[in-house]
Design a protein around this nucleic acid. Structure first.
Lengths: 182, 182
DNA sequence: CTCTAATCGGAGTCACGGCTCCGTATTCTA
DNA sequence: TAGAATACGGAGCCGTGACTCCGATTAGAG
């Protein structure tokens, strides 16, 4: 049975708002804050996502999906070898405004959150491809593996969040990514 | 007036326990947990540290002090140029068991926590010296500055915490630190 | 040893956040 | 357009955690 129109609309609204609010206030943000931001009541939030953790999972899954899409596009684009770097920059940029995502990404490794697993798998695969391409093109060291790329992603995001000076942020991101180069 | 013996003893006990508990359970750990770990009542905790934030500040200040001590020892040890790397390894190791420290370090940059300021200043100075030494010895790039070293420290700590495989952790730490080399 | 002032312990208060419940409003089918 | 099914809102319940208060317990001076 397809759900009612307002139901789907509100579900999407809540998901968006949750992303925005978590990003701005960290994962400690209250459900009521999210509900207010979405212009709905708390009841609605909990009907769609029975638990705060479920909501977080859903937000995270959506983010990972988007990233995975982007990764696949880049991977399909060819063997130039800079796809990996483009992806990492974009991933860091997407979450540098938002402390929360890095936190979440980190926890996602621990949580066996079923909702997140598929997106995560897809992303892992594609990043593997990008890494291969980069290694074949000679733009990445050959002695590194995918898990290290993710670790660097977490690292870079935190470093960038830590700094407050924009040009310095840029230089530091370059610095960290340069660790991957041969 | 010098405080009573049990007062000083308990203060130290609480500080140690707070460090241990925050390290194991993150900054969300409850005051009661800390009190129990220290074998005192919550009242005692709040008498010595009127606020949870004050307690956190105190723990952080103690950690930074210890780090600053170590940094000064290394700086005095000479111009070999590897002091910087030794310090960073040790700093990461000290906090890799403990997610919390990195979190705290990060916040310390934002909070104008008076309790932390002196230790932080001391540490910044000495790391500056270590960086100078490394640059003169040719073991560090000359186009980086102290703030970037701290950013890398935060980054490395998070990367190491993120990974769960010990040898991989080691290799990844090497990878990140290699970004500093010429 | 005694007495007092400093210190302690932990039950109790208050605020806040996750989650439930149900009367009301909205969608949609016939 | 009427009626049933579905979804909504938000007051309120409950548990948790920061912080207070005061009677019980020491430390340590004399």
């Amino acid at each position: 049975m397809t759900p009612r129109a307002d139901a789907t609309r509100n579900r999407a609204r809540v998901l968006d708002s949750a992303h925005a609010v978590f990003a701005e206030h960290g994962l400690g943000a209250s459900t009521e804050q999210i509900a207010r931001h979405a212009g709905v009541g708390v009841g609605t939030v909990f009907r769609h996502f029975p638990t705060k953790e479920a909501l977080l999972s859903a937000v995270l899954a959506a983010r990972l999906d988007a990233l995975a899409d982007e990764a696949e596009t880049l991977a399909a684009q060819g063997e130039s070898g800079d796809g990996l770097y483009r992806l990492m920059r974009s991933a860091v940029a997407a979450s540098s405004l938002k402390t929360a995502f890095a936190e979440a990404l980190q926890r996602a490794g621990v949580d066996v959150s079923d909702a997140v697993a598929p997106a995560r798998g897809r992303l892992t695969n594609t990043v593997g491809t990008l890494l291969d391409q980069a290694q074949r093109a000679g733009t990445a060291r050959t002695d590194i593996e995918v898990r290290q790329v993710f670790a660097l992603l977490v690292a870079a995001t935190h470093a960038v969040t830590y700094l407050d000076d924009d040009p310095l942020r840029e230089r530091t991101l370059d610095l960290i990514l340069s660790a991957l180069r041969p």
